[in-house]
Nucleic acid binder design. Structure first.
Lengths: 352, 352
DNA sequence: TTGAAAGCGCTAACAG
DNA sequence: CTGTTAGCGCTTTCAA
C-alpha cells in the first residue's frame, strides 16, 4: 500500500529520510553533502542513501539557499539581447557553462529600460543570486548599475566603461585582420572596406585590423575604397555601386557585416559581375541565415557568441571561487568561416 | 559616520527594520505584505515604511520562498529553442509576461537531451518553481516528463501528445489559408504550394489551409503544383525550377517557409522572370533577416512567437491562481506580413 | 492594534 | 563516528 506510487502527497524532507534511516537529520545532511572530515560509517551512509533512494528524496534548494546564503543561481541580465538572432547563442553558452557547474540561470531582459534594469537587479538580489552576467546586444561600453552589489559581476559582449568589472568581447581587430589577410593571401592588393558609419568599437577595431593587415604587406590603405555606410543591405548596395564605378575598382570587398555584404552581392549582380571570379567578398558576423544561403555562400568572420557566453559564466565561477584581483578584459577569437565568396583576383595569375 | 555610504556590511533583515521602527518583526511583515484584516495603525505603518526606506530594506525572497513554499519563479525549459532565431522572441514574450506578474524566469536549455531534461526538471523542482513552461523549437507533439509534477505546466510551440497539459501553437492552418487567400485576392488561380516533405504538423496544417482557401473559391487543388521538398533554399530552388517548366506553370507560389522562398527567388531569377510582375511568391515564418532583405522584400506569414510566449506564461499564471479544469489547446494567430512579392498575375487585367 | 512563538528545510558549530 | 542545538529570514497562528 505504501508504494512509491501513491506518494503524491509532498516532497519528503531530510527529517523523513533521517527517520527512515534511523539516524539524525545531521547525519543525513553530512552524508548527502559528502562532507569531508566527518567520518560517517560506511554502513550508516549506505542506510542513508538507501532511504534517500527509497523515498525519492531531493534536498530543498530554497532551504539550503537560505541557510548557506548562496543559491547556485546566476543572474543573466541583458538589454535587448534575447531578441537578436545572436542572443540565443550567448544565452546558450552561458547556460551550458552554468549547467556544467550545477548552476541555473535566472533571466531578465530589460529591453534597455533603466528602470526595469534597476528593478530586475533588485529582484535578483532578493533571490540571493550568486553573481551577475550583464549582457549587451553588441560590443560597446556599458555602465551596469551594479556598483554596490556584493556579488561578482561580469560583462558580456560589452565592457564596463568604468573598468570595475571583468568583461569579454569579440576580438574585432583580429577579425578584421584575418578577413583582410585572407584576401591578401588570395593575391588581392586593392581591397575595399565598407565600414559602419557609426563609430562603435566594432567599426574602429575592424578598421584597425584591416589597416594592420594591409600595412603588414606594405600596402597603404587607400581612402577612396574605405567607405562608411549605414549598416544595411542598402548601405552595402550603394557603397558597392560607387566602388564599382571607380576608375580603379577594388578586386575584393571586406564588408562590415553580412547584411552589408548582402547589399554588395546585389550591386555586384546588377553590374553583371560574378562572385568570386570577378570580385571577392568577405563579410562579418556569420549570420548563418544570410551568409550560408547567399549565392555563392559568403565567406565571413564569425562572432564567438557561444564562447563569450561560456567565458562570462566561467569567469564568474572563478570569481566566486576566489575573489581574484583586478578586473580583466578578455577578447574572444573571431574565427574565419570559409565559404565560396573568395578567389584570386581576375588579373592575378592564379597558380591552381 | 553611520551613513548609508558605509553600509556595505550586509542586507538588513526584517528584524533590523523592526528594531529601527520600534515594533515587532511581525508588525513589519504585516505592514510590508499589506495584510488585509490586520488593522495596523496608520501611524505604525508609517514608521515601518520609514525604517524600510531608511535602511534600504528588501525582503529576502529565499526566506519568504521557504516559508511560503512558493518562489515567484517560473521554470522555462526548452529543447534547442534558444539557438534558433525565433527562440529569443518566445523567451522574450514569456519573460515579459512573467515580469508583469512580478515573476522571474529560470532558464534551461536541454539541447534535446532527455537526461539533461530530467535533471533540469529536478533542479527546478528543487528550487520550488511555481510552474513550468515547456518550450519546443517548432510546432510538434511532445511528451514532457512532467507527469508527476505537482505544479502547473504549459507547453509552448508544441502540444502534449498525451493531452495532459495546456498548450499554445501557431495557427498554421489559418496562416496557410490567409497566404493562399491573399494570392487569390490578387487574381491568381493557379497557385503552387511548395510544402515540407517532412510530415510535421506545420506541413499538414498549412496544406489544409491552402486547400481550404482554394476550395472556398471553388478551385480544385492541383497535385502537379503541390510539391514536397526538403525545407531549404535548395529544395525551394529545385521545386521552383520544376514548376516553371510545367506546360501550365503557376502564376504564384506559396512556400512552406522563407528559406524555401529564398530558393524559389533564385530559380525565378535564373529563369529571367521578375517577382512579382511575372510571378508572385509568399513565404512563411517571417525570418526578418531573410524576408525583409530579399529582392523584392518577401510577403510572408509571421509566426507569433512573442505572443505564444506571453500566452504560455499568462496561462500558467491563471492556472496558478485557480487550478482550472481541462487542458486547453490554444492557437495563436499568424499575421500576414505584406511586402513586395505579390502582385496580380501577368495575364489578369489589373485595374491599377 | 500589536507581539510572542513556532516552524518552513536545511547547515554548521559543538558536544559527546 | 553521531546527535543536539541553533539559527538563516520570513509568515502565520494565537494571545494579549
Amino acid at each position: 500500500m505504501n508504494t512509491a506510487k501513491s506518494n503524491s502527497k509532498k516532497r519528503p524532507s531530510m527529517k523523513d529520510v533521517a527517520e527512515a534511516a534511523a539516524v539524525s537529520q545531521t547525519t543525513v545532511s553530512l552524508v548527502i553533502n559528502n562532507v569531508e572530515g566527518a567520518g560517517i560509517a560506511d554502513e550508516t551512509a549506505q542506510r542513508v542513501w538507501a532511504a534517500v533512494k527509497n523515498l525519492g528524496y531531493r534536498p530543498n534548494a530554497i532551504a539550503r539557499g537560505l541557510r548557506r546564503a548562496q543559491t547556485d543561481t546566476i543572474a543573466f541580465i541583458s538589454d535587448l539581447v534575447a531578441t537578436t538572432p545572436y542572443a540565443g547563442n550567448m544565452i546558450q553558452g552561458a547556460q551550458e557553462a552554468a549547467w556544467a557547474a550545477g548552476k541555473l540561470l535566472l533571466l531578465v531582459n530589460t529591453g534597455g529600460d533603466d528602470g526595469i534594469e534597476k528593478r530586475a537587479i533588485d529582484m535578483m538580489l532578493d533571490r540571493q543570486v550568486d553573481g551577475f552576467v550583464y549582457a549587451s546586444m553588441y560590443h560597446r561600453p556599458v555602465t551596469p548599475p551594479l556598483g554596490d552589489v556584493h556579488v561578482p559581476v561580469v560583462v558580456l559582449d560589452a565592457f564596463d566603461s568604468e573598468g570595475r568589472f571583468s568583461s569579454v568581447v569579440p576580438d574585432d581587430e583580429q577579425g578584421g585582420f584575418d578577413a583582410t589577410q585572407l584576401l591578401l593571401d588570395h593575391g588581392h592588393r586593392r581591397i575595399a572596406f565598407i565600414n559602419s558609419s557609426n563609430p562603435i568599437p566594432a567599426a574602429t577595431l575592424r578598421l584597425a585590423g584591416y589597416a594592420n593587415a594591409l600595412e603588414a604587406r606594405e600596402i597603404e590603405p587607400a581612402s577612396d575604397i574605405i567607405l562608411d555606410v549605414d549598416i544595411s543591405p542598402t548601405g552595402g548596395y550603394e557603397a558597392t555601386r560607387r566602388l564599382l564605378t571607380l576608375p580603379d575598382p577594388p578586386t575584393a570587398i571586406f564588408c562590415f557585416n553580412d547584411r552589408v555584404a548582402m547589399g554588395a552581392y546585389r550591386a555586384i549582380g546588377d553590374a553583371r559581375l560574378r562572385i568570386p571570379e570577378d570580385i571577392s567578398v568577405v563579410g562579418f558576423d556569420d549570420q548563418v541565415l544570410i551568409a550560408a544561403w547567399l549565392d555563392p555562400p559568403l565567406t565571413t568572420i564569425a562572432l564567438p557568441h557561444h564562447a563569450m557566453g561560456c567565458w562570462a559564466v566561467n569567469h564568474l565561477l572563478s570569481l566566486l571561487a576566489d575573489k581574484a584581483g583586478e578586473p580583466i578584459r578578455a577578447l574572444e577569437h573571431c574565427p574565419v568561416v570559409l565559404r565560396n565568396s573568395v578567389a584570386h583576383p581576375p588579373t592575378s595569375s592564379s597558380a591552381g
